[in-house]
Design a protein around this nucleic acid. Structure first.
Lengths: 211, 211, 211, 211
DNA sequence: CATGAATGAGTTTTCATTCAT
DNA sequence: TATGAATGAAAACTCATTCAT
């Protein structure tokens, strides 16, 4: 479960998990405040509650911290999103429910989403790919929800597009909050975006059917 | 027009403009490649064709360069977008035309869009606000196009939301290219997004009218 | 016999000897590879087959390891050299035999000789003196061999010089191998050096006799 | 002349030469005192009379300093040795003169010779090869002197061996001073070594001639 | 006796910025 | 105006050593 791309000199796996948990917590709050590049490893150590030497017993490089953080965020989003989907009763209402939950999740995790958006690029290719795969997985999950919950048959491309849009619109609530959160409450934002989404989808489907 | 937030020791305004032009050009290509933080001022000076000493005659801090770059990018996007809008013949076709142009513009400026998305946060509040105002202006412009071109009457909120969605979907083509550009050509992306957008809007309008 | 300059917290002397044996073996192969300074105590512990904590039960500082290693090497050289000398039948042939054995010994222990040459200086005065005394002992031994085996009477100085030359020429085979071992096989090297040595000595003796 | 393996960010070549001269001087005295590994770059900078930042304008890594130092030492030895050889009047007396000068040179540069012997190994292969080539050149020079100055014809191997012996015996005066300089004055050392050398060579030649 | 997690002083290196020429 | 040498604070990372278990 723990990303073992990151090598630790500590043998006790449980301890590694615990310390990394502390580390992620400390680092996230620092990254929120000042970004990855402006945060020093010493600050991370201090915020995690241990010494710089100890920090480096659990990671190899500063980038490892970023990776751990990004991975943890994705994992959290993914877990929470999965827990909400009721695969057994597919219906438009279910879809609406998922959209609602997802948007609320994004609201909860605004800062974390920002970190992802702005810092993932600093990961080196290998680890970036790993993290992005998780994002792909989530979009795929949304695609499945859409396909399952909507009665109309849609092209794969349209499903993909809708899932992407929905995914980004959720994030948009976080990374454009300076703009949106002046004009919208979370409730109206969810409601109007859901409305748009469903109208676009059903009509789209309907019009495609006729054609 | 030139952002005079940034103070220069040089008197000759024309020269300042010229040197900053060189600077922006050099810096953009470096930021594309390695991001703001990993680019050094020496590299910027070299890429701009002058010495580090000269660089500092035209700016006060490294952040100034970032500001100049961000500002220039926004200015460029804004100018090109404005040039395309035909305010005198509002119609759905005009709207479609604007969407098309905007998406193609985003395609052209993928790298620059990425810089914006990932580096603006490194600006200090004051200058960040300045740059974001430009983004606000652009969304406002899109809102006007929507209001003007669509026959139906929509709530301000829905217009704002549609404009934001459209704006972000354009950017999404750039910052999610690793995902989207495997599945879509630019043409199909534009076509399906336009389709979704219009269906959502008109249906939305229609349904609101009835209500 | 075991260098008790180095203090251990462990009481059981036999165990101390055993562990230090492991330690020396591990350290020598590491020092050969990367030198004393570039080798870490953790690596030494691992190569010795126990933990870093255990390592420090048997030594006080990293330098102690170096001392132990140097001491062991000298001890080994000394022992092997002593074992070869036949004090009961002094003759030029015996001398030749000693030279031959010594050079072959140096050939066997090239890496160890290199460690000595390059790292002894890192010992602190006290321990360095201890180690160097062993070197002095060996030269003295060679002096005795020379005096005993050669019929001619030589000045103490000349004997000392000859012993030193011989000693260094043996080491030279190791630390100048990049140069010598392209031009000489061990056999020719031994043969020519022996030739030089004997000619110098006898002639010298002869000439001195005359004088 | 200056080793341009080592890259500097400073353009003014003269300045580079001057600063490196300062650097070498500072570093040599530190290396003499505590060796390469125990000397910090900050100490080198201070001893050179400039800041740590400036130090790094003239080199890339700490190892560069070592290379510069080793190179300078060799260059100095080589130059001084060359200057002493009188190629126009080859004779045994000339050979003796060269030996004498070389041994005195080694006496002058004892500390530097020690640095070479103990630290060259820390250079990376590439630069080590470069430095060692200089040593090879010097031995070659000695070989030429021997061949030219001695009337007898010797095998190449014997010439090479004699040159190596002579070379190492000079260095031996430096790196075994703790042993030798108690028993010998420089003068007696030179005189006896010369004696040995010549006797070995001529007799050798003589004996070979007979054979 | 053995272990290995914790520590933090110390090391090399970078780089934004200044200022004399 | 233009240059580029000089600066030093700050950063990432290492590693000998300790000590609780």
């Amino acid at each position: 479960m723990a990303p073992d791309q990151v090598i630790s000199s500590i043998k006790d796996a449980e301890l590694v998990a615990k310390r990394r948990q502390q580390m992620i917590q400390g680092a996230v709050s620092l990254f929120k405040e000042k970004g990855f590049h402006r945060t020093t490893t010493r600050e991370i150590a201090r915020a995690s509650g241990f010494s710089i030497g100890t920090l480096y017993e659990y990671i190899r490089t500063k980038e490892d911290v970023l990776f751990l953080v990004c991975d943890a965020i994705y994992e959290q989003v993914k877990t929470r999103l999965e827990s909400v989907i009721d695969w057994w009763n597919p219906s438009v209402a279910t879809l609406e429910q998922v959209v609602d939950s997802y948007f609320r999740l994004m609201d909860d995790m605004q800062e974390e989403v920002l970190i992802m958006y702005q810092e993932v690029k600093s990961l080196k290719k290998e680890t970036k790919d790993y993290v992005m795969q998780k994002e792909r997985d989530m979009v795929t999950m949304l695609e499945k929800v859409i396909t399952t919950c909507l009665p109309e048959v849609m092209s794969n491309q349209d499903v993909a597009l809708a899932a992407n849009n929905m995914f980004v619109q959720g994030q948009m609530w976080a990374f454009r909050r300076w703009m949106l959160q002046k004009q919208f409450t979370l409730e109206t934002y969810i409601s109007r975006q859901t409305h748009f989404l469903l109208q676009a989808l059903s009509i789209n489907a309907a019009s495609e059917e006729k054609a």
